[in-house]
Amino acid sequence: MGEGWSDIFSLIAILLDDPNVTRNTPMPVATYVAGSPAGIRKYPYSTDKAINPSVYSFLAQDEYKEPHNMGEVWASMLFEVYWNLVDKYGCGPIEQRNLGVGNALMLQLIMDGLKLQPCRPTFVDARNAILLADNNLTGGANQCLIWNGFAGRGLGIAAVPGVYVDSNVVPPECEGA
């Protein structure tokens, strides 16, 4: 998931601080390295599945066993959660560390989740660590936003580590939320 962590950090810290960027804006990564507007990832990041169809079940494909491609799926999931938080709380300068805005809150949840997850985490472990981070930081105020983001990319409540079948199921309290 390392490649995904680095992608989401760069997107939050640099690219997504633009008020003209929306959840459906295609966001390629490292266009300068690729020498192409498409960047170095298979799909640009976007919550629009017509632009970026990455889901948990992609990990069953041999090409997604490679760290860069696996990380791209993870970052796509985090991108969904990011936008759920930004849609609810807005976006502000992250250097102000105002956890009342979605982008700064997401960054803090990721950092806290990294500390809470076990060594060599699975996608499920990392998802659960971010949920726990939200519980610790906000009393669980964003559980449904987080669950819906992950479930939208197949990492719902029934997702199993190493069994790459999409689960779009969220806890009952998050259905329709």
Rank of each mutant, 00 (worst) to 15 (best):
P28T: 13
V33C: 10
F123V: 14
A38R: 13
V21N: 01
N128K: 06
S57K: 02
Y164K: 07
L105C: 13
V81D: 00
L15G: 14
M111W: 04
N168Y: 15
Q108R: 13
Y89L: 15
N128V: 05
A34R: 08
G39D: 00
Y82M: 07
A75V: 00
K42W: 10
L132G: 02
W147H: 03
V165Y: 04
S10V: 14
L85M: 08
A60I: 06
R153A: 02
V55W: 04
V21A: 08
E175N: 09
I8L: 07
R97F: 11
L15P: 08
G102I: 05
G102S: 07
T122Q: 00
I40Q: 00
D125H: 03
K65H: 14
F9A: 12
E63D: 11
N128P: 00
D87C: 00
N24D: 10
G92R: 02
G154R: 05
L114Q: 08
V165N: 11
S76G: 15
R97Y: 09
P26R: 05
L105D: 06
R23E: 15
P28M: 05
A38W: 09
P53V: 01
I130L: 10
F58L: 05
I51S: 07
G152E: 02
Y82G: 08
V169P: 02
A151R: 02
D134G: 00
C144D: 09
M27D: 09
A30V: 06
G39W: 07
K88S: 10
Y56R: 11
G102F: 02
